[in-house]
């Protein structure tokens, strides 16, 4: 066994320190060390996107990044989407549109979708499809996922307008 390294990172808004082996992927670190099992392993080769997390706001396949590379980074996983038990609008829309079946791909899709909406609050359908092209689903397919993301975007925008009007 190789020597473990101490890493400090912000994960879902909290500063955490953890020990990980140099060869452990970020996905393994999240799941096995930090017990955040929401990020899923589908392939370990960066093809399926089930392990997608945000690293400093950018979507990354956590199976392709080392745990030690998380040093100083700001990481958001699916566990970080709901705040105090209140679901993120994307999560609500996924449920409303029945955009999930077995659910293994869902955390990755949610993170990729969040990354898109953070950057582009008014995506076209094609932009949504493009942003989700790195996530694979074998059950429901993508139609409902795309609709859920577009609907979430519209919701976020109208909330924003509502807030602006209230001011």
């Amino acid at each position: 066994m190789s020597k473990k390294t101490l890493v400090e990172a912000t994960i879902n808004g909290e500063t955490v320190e953890f020990l990980c082996e140099p060869r452990q992927s970020l996905l393994e670190t999240l799941r096995d060390v930090l017990e955040l099992t929401g990020s899923k392993e589908g392939c370990l080769t960066g093809d399926c996107g089930a392990c997608t997390v945000l690293v400093d706001g950018r979507p990354v396949c956590s199976c392709l990044m080392l745990g030690v590379e998380a040093q100083g980074k700001n990481i958001v996983t699916v566990e970080g989407l709901a705040i105090n038990g209140v679901l993120h609008v994307l999560q609500n829309k996924f449920l409303e549109h029945a955009a999930l079946q077995c659910g293994i791909c869902t955390p990755g899709f949610l993170i990729s979708a969040k990354s898109l909406l953070d950057r582009n609050p008014k995506p076209t359908e094609h932009e949504v499809r493009y942003a989700l092209a790195g996530n694979l689903c074998r059950c429901t397919g993508y139609d409902k996922i795309v609709k859920a993301v577009l609907d979430a975007a519209a919701d976020i925008r109208s909330q924003g307008e509502g807030k602006a009007a209230a001011r």
Partner: peptide, 18 residues
């Protein structure tokens, strides 16, 4: 809507792997 949807959408659903 799926009754176990919130568990799946928050990462709280435990699969064999978890």
């Amino acid at each position: 809507p799926r009754v176990d949807g919130p568990l799946k959408a928050t990462g709280a659903a435990h699969y064999t792997y978890d």
